[in-house]
Nucleic acid binder design. Sequence first.
DNA 1: AATGTGACCGCGA
DNA 2: TTCGCGGCCACAT
Length: 112
Amino acid sequence: MKKKFGIPSRSADPYKQIYAVVHCIPKGRVATYGQIAALLGRERHARQVGHAMSALPAGSTVPWHRVINAKGELSLRDPYHESLQQKLLEAEGVVFDKNGRISLHKFRWEPS
DNA sequence: AATGTGACCGCGA
DNA sequence: TTCGCGGCCACAT
């Protein structure tokens, strides 16, 4: 076989890993980009997670709205999506404080 | 191929 | 507490 079946991880595969982790976030809980990256062994590659979310198709089953930044705030580029994210989180019981921040101390997902 | 930007994070002032 | 800077990697042009 000329083609090696051992495809290098970079391509669409790592994104699947990210999506898998995000999909594991329980309802009513949130996780940070860095946290997800850390679960994949890429603690300093939080940005990659953000790009993965950005590349997420509209009809995806991945609960991308449960992913926030380390400050407990929404960091989306598009205000429309940001608003939608807040709405979805509130619908799951996540509470935003007056500054629009989430209490990570309470809602942070703790993987075992 | 090189450069710039990005749904970020951590630290220092 | 907030603001600024550097660092890490992937993607788009």
